[in-house]
Design a binder for these strands. Structure first.
Length: 446
RNA sequence: GGGCCCGUAGCUCAGCCCGGUAGAGCAGGCGGCUCUUAACCGCAAGAUCAGGGGUUCGAAUCCCCUCGGGCCCGCCA
């Protein structure tokens, strides 16, 4: 069609939100936007009748949701348009939208009133769409690998499977305290005992800790458990998943420099460092595995840690690692074969004494996930839980007696992994705060 | 929990150092304009300057406290 042209024989109907109104006396342009994009409506006094034209414009505000019917046309400046014959107000915007050019800038308002952020910012809409697609792709990938998605309890008598403070609530009916889960691990391993050989859960986990750019009190975790496989198998599975997601994110966020970098960084091969060797190298401290709890505590203190004196030995090793090694883990790195004292749920290493078969993934100084060859010996599991209990201070792995009883019935040798999904989405999209990838992050009530 | 920074109209910002009683753009109102796309032109309106207290003849501005947020540290798989 030529500029100024119109097809009076064709009729089109559209609906969307008014983004901008430009009135020129007896003609007006209205930008209408929906999920597929933006279309210019052309309203003219001469075709609509002056009274109708004036009444419609008088009632029209940015943010209104309209239905429009008319003929395809091209404006004199060449913009594809709809020459409107009928206009229907579908919803009135009483409150104004954010500033039309700068959008919503205030960080707090963008989080507290996410609907306005989404309304004003296509980038925000695209990011959250990408998040959903990434989660869908993780499910597809695991489903195709023969894993079964399951749902396990969020409300539990004792939250265990990790060292963290739980949220506490109550059941009126049971007249009993309940805790919100801090991990998915123990229920999923019970399913291995029950003969479900490949399971995963993708769901919300809760930890009653401080919030910052990489910690949210409720966050999304992926955990997968795989019978008759070990942590080498798991590493191959997760590396292929990362590569798969990296290929997709570039396509879903084609204009995002953050996603461009993420896609590149999540392509294998990835660096590998041995937990103990790397810590000894970076810190200059020899023979870490032969140190007593008291010696480790003194070393952690010297490195500036303030965790309680009666924390378990593994906590001090973790603190030393966080202080000496983590700051160097910029590129995606697999840290492997941790000291046994740090990890009560992992199986002892087949050849390295004092170690477990474990890997952790780090990207930009932040842990993305954690995997083991799972401990399946009930007697040793009980001992390892009890080692945690000698320490009274700090957070420890809560003793879950029924879990030990379940292991006594035989859990197949298996590997398992936990992934911080919000952090993975951050890494793949280049987001710098966990709040940027959670639609409605927890904020202090006003 | 500690340190630093921020909070001015519905939105985006200026004014704060150096105290003199709040200014613009967008949105909203009124008027003009038949080709704009961050439309434009004119007029009028819109602000307990986050809240409270203090210093001062006078506080958005200086000081203290509180609330909310951001960043760093601590704590946290």
């Amino acid at each position: 069609m030529e500029p100024g042209g119109e097809r009076p024989d064709e009729t089109m109907r559209v609906a969307g939100r008014v983004k901008a109104i430009r009135v020129h006396g007896r003609a007006a342009f209205v930008d209408l936007e929906d999920r597929t994009g933006s279309l210019q409506l052309l309203l003219r006094s001469d075709t609509l009748g002056d009274e109708t034209y004036r009444r419609w414009l008088a009632d029209l505000d940015p943010g209104d949701i309209l239905g429009a019917e008319g003929h395809p046309a091209v404006s004199k400046r060449g913009e594809p348009s709809l020459a409107v014959g009928q206009l229907t107000l579908l919803a009135k915007a009483i409150a104004p939208p954010p500033e039309k050019y700068h959008g919503l800038q205030d960080v707090e308002e963008r989080i507290r009133r996410r609907y306005l952020d989404l309304l004003a910012s296509p980038e925000t809409r695209e990011l959250f769409r990408a998040r959903t697609l990434l989660l869908r792709e993780m499910r597809r990938y695991l489903d195709a690998a023969g894993f079964l998605e399951v749902e396990t309890p969020i409300l539990l008598p004792i939250a265990s499977g990790a060292a963290a403070k739980p949220f506490v609530t109550r059941s009126s009916y049971l007249d009993a305290e309940l805790q919100l889960r801090i991990s998915l691990e123990l229920p999923l391993k019970r399913l291995l005992v029950g003969g479900m050989e490949r399971v995963y859960e993708l769901g919300r986990t809760f930890r009653n800790e401080d919030m910052d750019s990489t910690h949210s009190p409720e966050f999304t975790e992926l955990e997968a458990y795989w019978a008759y496989a070990d942590y080498h198998d798991m590493r191959r599975l997760i590396e292929r998943l990362f590569e798969h997601l990296a290929d997709h994110v570039r396509e879903w966020l084609p204009n995002s420099p953050g996603a461009e970098r993420g896609a590149k960084d999540f392509k294998p091969p990835f660096a590998t460092v041995d937990f103990v060797d790397e810590l000894e190298r970076r810190s200059g401290i020899p023979d870490l595995l032969s140190k007593s709890r008291e010696e480790l505590r003194a070393l952690a203190r010297a490195a500036g840690s303030t965790v309680p004196d009666d924390s378990p030995a593994g906590t001090f090793l973790d603190k030393l690692f966080e202080h000496y090694v983590e700051p160097h883990l910029e590129a995606l790195t697999f840290v492997v074969d941790h000291p046994a004292a740090t990890t009560p749920l992992a199986k002892r290493h087949r050849s390295k004494p004092g170690r477990v078969e474990r890997f952790e993934m780090f990207y930009r100084q932040t842990e993305l996930g954690n995997a083991y060859t799972e401990l399946n010996d009930p007697d040793e599991q009980e001992r390892r839980f009890r080692e945690q209990l000698v320490a009274r201070g700090g957070d420890t792995y809560a003793y879950d007696a029924d879990f030990v009883r379940a292991l006594a019935h035989g859990m197949p040798p298996a590997t398992g992994i936990g992934v911080g999904v919000d952090r993975l989405v951050m890494g793949l999209t280049g987001a710098s705060s966990i709040k940027d990838v959670i639609l409605f992050p927890l904020v202090r009530p006003r």
